[in-house]
Design a protein around this nucleic acid. Sequence first.
DNA 1: AACCAACGTTTCATATATAAAACAATTTTT
DNA 2: AAAAATTGTTTTATATATGAAACGTTGGTT
Lengths: 279, 279
Amino acid sequence: MHDVDPVAIDTLSHEPDIKYIVPGLKRGLDILKIFNRKRVQMNAPEIAKELQVPRSTIFRLLQTLEYMDLIEKVPNTSNYKLAAGALGLGFEFLASLEITDFANPILEKLSNRTGLSAHVVIRDKTDVVFIAKKSAKLTFSSSVNIGTRLPAHGTVLGRVLLADLSKAELKKLYPESDLVGFSKQTPESVDKLSQVLELDRVNGYAISEAYFENGIGSIAAAIRDGSSKAVAAINVTYQLGTVEESVINGLLLESVLAAAEELSRQLNYSDQKAIRNVG
Amino acid sequence: MHDVDPVAIDTLSHEPDIKYIVPGLKRGLDILKIFNRKRVQMNAPEIAKELQVPRSTIFRLLQTLEYMDLIEKVPNTSNYKLAAGALGLGFEFLASLEITDFANPILEKLSNRTGLSAHVVIRDKTDVVFIAKKSAKLTFSSSVNIGTRLPAHGTVLGRVLLADLSKAELKKLYPESDLVGFSKQTPESVDKLSQVLELDRVNGYAISEAYFENGIGSIAAAIRDGSSKAVAAINVTYQLGTVEESVINGLLLESVLAAAEELSRQLNYSDQKAIRNVG
DNA sequence: AACCAACGTTTCATATATAAAACAATTTTT
DNA sequence: AAAAATTGTTTTATATATGAAACGTTGGTT
């Protein structure tokens, strides 16, 4: 056993300091991850092909996952699907976030006040992840579910969070200078993004029209904790053309900022601590 | 490598047909499962002791889990906690359930109509698992979160689901005849449980007072799909003494039954199919 | 400040998880 | 209805994941 290349089973690894990966665990988790809204159930050979892992190995992994109550056989088929045990993990994570305790009532208030759908996200690397939401009563509710990920640089929610990073941190987060675009307004390079973020930082909020998805407008503001770090973001979304400009810059913006402030306060944020390290 | 006892790393295994468990995967998942509301963060030695696995092995497993974005280091400590990646799994499972598409609006209606907290659960083995909820506006909302598990036999939600099983299926589910009790009313044996369920089956609903937790009352009804199988249950909860008996048996019961019917209809349930196999 | 204990990390022999192959059972095609 | 292909499962040699031990490192204690 000489000269073993760490993380050899994964070809593309930018991670610098990760040394040893347990293949059984990685592959088992890979199996779990290929189940999603679009592919609710799969059988063993399909999984084997997808992951490029021998059938006999997949077989044992599936048995283990079934034993752990994470997947189960679909009756009368040879397919597997996620089982109820899979719920546990995600919700323990949510429960471990202080912010989820406070988010729902504030989202409700925000949604009632504006008549719109409201969301709270956190940032995970280059993604924003929805951790709480309140759908609008009247209009068709937003299609995002809790757990949904969107690229941070393509949403105003992500922008107010990225705006909290230093230029160095941003560069580290996006080693490639080119960014994937989603609409005309999406910045297509890290430098462009940095410029946009500078403005968001000064404003303390971000308003977008058609930033991620065409036809959807969004107003977002950062939520800060006791260390003044932006730990989450809150927004409301509306269909373009259905809300007057004056309302957007008036009631909506005010409501979002008020909600962000209230949530920040509950996380022990205080303005005093917000001494800019530039100043 | 002769005579290896399958599932040897786990001593208590009632599962009859599970043969081969991948230790790396099982242990990695065990690590994830020890994180919960109470123990939000842990370090490697603690985990090693808890799971009775060597430190060096835990070390590699933790690296793998971190690499997979399921756990992360808590800044300035040697502790680990769940990471945002853990969210994905649970919500993909929820999204894969047809019922979650319909549950929320109906829960909202039910909660508004009754002024109480309302919940939808599914059954997983001997547990009920909360998959949707709507907290009451006024009273203190229920403490359960989505993903919370409760023993089925100790809740009316669980009872209306267990009532759908045959006596044989029930016996198979509870091989031990003794049941853990939670309050005076909890049936302490499978036979006792079976009697209670018979009544629930006839009624088509279950009303409890202090069944699981003292001081909390609950009215539950089963939700059925196109095959007439009870796939979920819906309830409202109230604090004992705050609601009049006539309201419980009137408005509350009616509302719960109506919500269960509406949800069942959306799952393609129709009365015609509900031909009892008892004849 | 020196000691000790606990921890993070690496090394290395060996027990063992794995991949290929074979087999059995099922499904699909002709 | 027979043949072929795909799938579920088991076997077995071998590559490798593992656990014990050792090595540095950190943090706490006297």
